[in-house]
Simulated scan of single mutants.
Amino acid sequence: MTDSEFMTFFAEAASAGFRAFKIKVGHRDPHRDLHRLELLRQVVGSDVQVMIDANEAWTVEEAAQRLTLFRDSGFPILWAEDPILRDDFDGLRALRAMVPWVQVNSGEYLDISGRRRLLQAGGTDILNVHGRITEVMRIGWLAADMGVGVSLGNTFLETGVHAACALPEVRWMEYSFQNYDHLVDEPILIRDGHAHVGRRPGIGFALSSAAREAWSAPEVLETEELAIGPVCAVLQRHRQAPTPMSDSHTAARI
């Protein structure tokens, strides 16, 4: 986003009643990150919760330096999401000790086994989960057993709100203003920064008839009518040309 788009987006979120905001950081120039934090404060005020997501941009030392810089520049941060590599469990544990004023949020990109090892290593203050409900419930209960908070990352149509309500340690759920509400008759109600769960059974959604008519797929084409993509064309040439056994193994791996 440009600075103008950034400010417009968060001003609209604030006007909708949200009181917690997450922004991307991790730019090579730390002053670029400070600039965005200042813009955020200008549009939403200082009496809010601010989270940052570095998308694994830093080393442990860099993360500690940046988080210290943000604090000393007057920007209190609730959590730093994925500040370093996702599977550097020792580094995440060390970072928690180095910056105790910021909570580390990690686990979004790990599978259930990786999240278990992350918890066992003491590498996160908040476990980030989303995706398959069964997997979320399993690891969410383990986090609760270990006294670790849980946040629900982005989930399609906010289906994660059901898991959030069913687990004891969920404190936050992300909302990204993704325009999927038109697909169902009654979407999850988001009002004043809170998700309001309906009382219909299961996930509670019914596919909208209007959406089904407007967004239905085109007629199915026969195989011979399909265009050949670049990868398929390469494989097709491999199949047609006489090649030694070693080359055919290479084509199979592709």
Rank of each mutant, 00 (worst) to 15 (best):
I23T: 11
V104W: 02
L39A: 01
L69K: 09
W215A: 14
S246T: 14
H27C: 02
V148Y: 06
R115P: 06
E169C: 05
G198V: 11
W172G: 01
I84S: 05
S216P: 01
E213I: 10
R36V: 02
W172F: 15
T2R: 08
H196R: 14
Y180N: 13
A13R: 14
G91W: 09
A144F: 00
A54E: 00
E5K: 12
E135C: 02
G114K: 03
W172Y: 13
G17D: 10
R117D: 15
S73L: 02
G26R: 06
D3N: 12
R66I: 02
A144D: 10
A206L: 09
F70L: 15
R200Y: 00
S73V: 01
V150G: 07
D72K: 11
A14V: 01
Y109L: 12
E5R: 12
G131L: 04
L118C: 08
L157W: 01
V150S: 07
M173W: 04
F9C: 09
R96N: 07
G17L: 08
V231D: 14
H238C: 13
F70E: 06
S106P: 04
P218I: 14
A241M: 11
D125C: 11
A94V: 11
A94S: 14
D185T: 15
N154D: 11
D47F: 02
F156L: 13
R116T: 15
R115W: 09
T68Y: 10
A80G: 08
I77L: 11
N128Y: 05
S113D: 11
A64K: 09
L37W: 04
D111E: 05
V60I: 15
V43Y: 10
T155A: 02
T134N: 10
L221G: 07
A16L: 11
A143L: 09
G198A: 14
V60Q: 08
R132S: 04
A252P: 03
L85T: 12
E222Q: 13
I254W: 08
R116G: 00
V102D: 07
R138Y: 00
S209I: 06
E135Q: 12
V99H: 06
Q120A: 15
H249C: 03
R191P: 01
R200N: 00
T68F: 06
P244M: 02
V44W: 01
F18Y: 14
L183D: 00
A16M: 14
L183E: 03
I112D: 08
W79L: 10
A210N: 11
Y175L: 08
G140K: 09
G153A: 09
M137I: 15
Q236D: 12
V43G: 05
H194G: 00
V129R: 02
